[in-house]
Design a protein around this nucleic acid. Structure first.
Lengths: 202, 202
DNA sequence: TCCGGGACTGACACCGACGTCAGTACGGTC
DNA sequence: GACCGTACTGACGTCGGTGTCAGTCCCGGA
């Protein structure tokens, strides 16, 4: 009896399972995904899965962690004293990097923005603390910006929530509906919104 | 053997289970909540639960549906030709009604904003179509606003996502952390943000 | 006092998903 | 051709959680 179409090395097999599992998670959601489905999608036997991953939670965590790590690196502190790059450009670049990462691998983004909460108390904590970190970073930057008068007066904590939420929801909607949406158009739209809102009610 | 401390009528018992279950869901999340936990929290036996509710999904749906229905009613179309109420006031009132409903019952809000997605494919669809409805309503209003020059030019669909996301995330953060946050401060903060963003980068 | 029915109970049978492990296939080495 | 070692297989035992239902309790009417 033949096992797999092509004989593959261990790291390749691992990556293969990871990628296929990601697609299943994106399609079915974390809780609805059974090991059997991952295994079927990857064209391997049940036992093989456990040779490469501890359990469902472990493979899920690995998928999400990669993107979280990339995001963490992509967001860099705005330096208002950098002569070579305006604050506006730096902000825009941050938005662009986030958007690029998240629209590049839509399956993972969908997972991250809709299934990652509610997996497990420990995992929830990790995810929330990531958001906390991002939010704190934002708050600090906003406060600094207020002193330099490049950020409106007001509660910076609330602002950070509003900003994060606006971007998160847009990205979620785009990947959720599988809509094509031009990266740059989103970056510009979000940036403009952050600068001036959208209501002009005198 | 005594059964329950106080003898209660059927509708009261039902409501009691509903309320206690809501708290358990809020604390533990949908998937982590077992019928046994609801039953323990309500101080009733396993069998009793099934006298009142089909299953876990049914009681969860009932909890969430109530709030969704209230939200649906709370959001009213902005009428730019209403002489008695300015557009700004009407918008602000919509925000206020949403905020009031969601901060009034924080447990349910937490459930709605963090657990409700990923329960079940059918339930997901229902929830997403609710958001779709809200989003469409918003888009229409925004488009109308653009004609009247009270809304910035740009993609109204993106704007609706940005607006919804900003508000959702703020509310989520508030209930998630159990932070006290003044209703009116949030309404004002969100409204100001919608009108003018928060960046002032020339 | 006995009976009937409604509210409630909780032990139990069932089930679906999990993780394991004895076994199979196959490529290399002597 | 015999013998490993490695990658893989899938049937099977296990288990946590579910929903059920025969039985208990209690009250109100005859």
């Amino acid at each position: 009896m033949r096992y797999t179409s092509g004989s593959v090395g261990k790291p390749e097999r691992r990556q293969q399972i990871l990628t296929l599992a990601r697609d299943v998670f994106a399609r079915r959601g974390y809780h609805a995904t059974k090991i059997d489905e991952i295994v079927a999608a990857a064209g391997i036997a049940r036992g093989t899965f456990y040779l490469y991953f501890e359990d469902k939670r472990a493979i899920f965590e690995e998928i999400v962690d990669r993107t979280i790590a990339r995001l963490g690196l992509a967001i860099v502190r705005v330096d208002p004293h950098d002569a070579s790059r305006s604050v506006a450009d730096q902000v825009r670049d941050n938005i662009r990097r986030i958007v690029r990462i998240l629209l590049e691998d839509r399956a993972t983004t969908k997972i991250l923005l809709s299934d990652a909460l509610g997996v497990d108390p420990a995992f929830d904590r990790k995810l929330l603390s990531f958001y906390d970190e991002m939010s704190s970073l934002l708050e600090t930057s906003l406060r600094e910006g207020q002193e330099l008068q490049v950020v409106a007066v007001g509660d910076v904590r609330l602002m950070s929530w509003l900003l994060m939420g606006a971007l998160k929801e847009s990205l979620f909607q785009i990947v959720q509906r599988g809509a094509e949406y031009d990266d740059e158009k989103l970056v510009d739209g979000a940036f403009d919104f952050f600068c001036a809102g959208c209501l002009r009610v005198t």
